[in-house]
Nucleic acid binder design. Structure first.
Lengths: 247, 247
DNA sequence: ACCATTCAGGTACGATGTACGCAAACGGAG
DNA sequence: CTCCGTTTGCGTACATCGTACCTGAATGGT
């Protein structure tokens, strides 16, 4: 009777250092993951093919399968390695607003360093140890404030949703700007590809048009724009925290 | 000097009915898109290959390229066709809360009918006419309430983020339940695959554990659970609407 | 009746993930 | 040292994908 196959990579730890016979492994999961991250940073996640990563390590594609069951698992490992870059105190400080801000900004920073992160993170449900650590910290920031666990969970979910989508939007601009060659600042002022221009000129979507043309925050530095939306969100959460004096 | 190539499928309308010489087209963009949607509904988006769709129509793969430039464009067309199922009044009613609720529930319903929709929608930036229509309606719901356009845009963004991620979570349960063969209700009570169980038993993530084990809303019918989070979000938006009397 | 034009779709190419199998490296037992 | 079971390295091979190219059939205007 065979073992039931592990449901995720996190239940299949790398083979440990042993002292039996047999050839020694020449690579490691971490090394392979790191290489994959570098390739993805430089050329996008679609360049992280098994052959490409292997050749980066000077070996053959099939060698990687001694360390990683499938390519999808490698994507999970990449996500978690990068989540490991997020630095947080051991415990929340007690100031929920600055704790959540910290998580938000750190996550955004990681997302900008690795433009593939957010797409991967939101397209596959994964729960690696580092992601869990960050999540636990965020939940902890709202603990002991009179909220029940469903509200805490719900608010942290909203925070994550905001951070992911705001960061994704930001990355979208950067990539669009790089593709068209313009520098981001000038590009955002003159703005918008031909398609959005067509939408605007059609006159059929007046509010969408205003959100494109009359936006104040669109001209802010990205970090301030991020902060602006974040503050709105935290204000919304704050309403439910009775012990909060600021509002 | 060639035309600059269109930036999106929406700038490349289907060839119109003409009256010149040449063979008549045997298919149409809409017909192909509809077939793709059916295949995706039945077997997932990864089954919507060009060959599969073509053979469903009784033709060869390459014929599709007379109607759609690339497979990615077909994905955009699928998204927008399904967004077209969302039924909304011509103009918002004036009750912002019920207007946004309507958008939220309609979008969730479309996402549940077509489990691939949310993944596609959040993994590729697309702005088809039907998506624009829905977005414009949502923006309109918050117009004339004393908010500036950045806040309106920001709140609608938060609403979308919530709807997408809540619906995605719900779909995840359904698929997990289908995969393991259990019916959704029982499965959600007994809950959780072996990996989450291991996390819980590790004791290292007490708040995550509580969010799994002590949740009240987890046992609610999905629609009520959705409503619960939605109400929290709308409460948060309501704070910023001064003319709102309910809070 | 002819022809320029348009569509249908077969063939073919490069790329991908990965199953399979064999040879090379290794440590322990004799 | 010699042999042997075990483990790793990786070449070969295959199914499947998007899609470039090309030939032949259909069509309506002249």
């Amino acid at each position: 009777m065979p073992d039931e196959k592990p449901t995720s990579i996190w239940m299949l730890p790398e083979r440990q250092e042993r002292s039996g016979p047999g050839r020694r492994p020449g690579y490691s999961r971490e090394q392979i993951t790191q290489t994959a991250v570098q390739v993805a940073d430089a050329e996008g996640v679609e360049a992280t093919t098994m052959r490409r990563i292997a050749s980066e390590l000077g070996t053959g594609a099939m060698s990687l399968y001694r360390y990683v069951p499938k390519r999808d698992d490698l994507l999970d490992l990449m996500i978690d390695m990068v989540m490991g870059e997020i630095e947080l105190p051991d415990r929340p400080s007690g100031d929920w607003r600055s704790d959540l801000s910290l998580v938000a900004h750190q996550t955004r920073a990681a997302g900008l360093r690795h433009p593939w992160l957010i797409t991967l993170l939101t397209s596959r449900p994964t729960l690696g140890p580092h992601l869990l650590r960050v999540h636990e910290f965020a939940l902890g920031a709202l603990d002991r404030l009179g909220l029940d666990i469903d509200d805490i969970s719900s608010f942290v979910g909203m925070l994550n949703d905001y951070v992911y989508s705001a960061t994704r939007r930001e990355i979208g601009w950067l990539e669009e700007a790089r593709r068209t060659g313009l520098d981001p600042e000038r590009w955002k002022r003159d703005y918008i590809g031909p398609y959005v221009r067509q939408i605007v000129e059609s006159g059929a979507y007046p509010l969408f048009t205003r959100s494109v043309l009359e936006s104040r925050t669109a001209h802010l530095p990205p970090a301030e724009r991020f902060q602006y939306g974040l503050d709105r969100l935290l204000d919304g959460i704050g309403v439910h925290i009775t012990s909060d004096i600021s509002r």
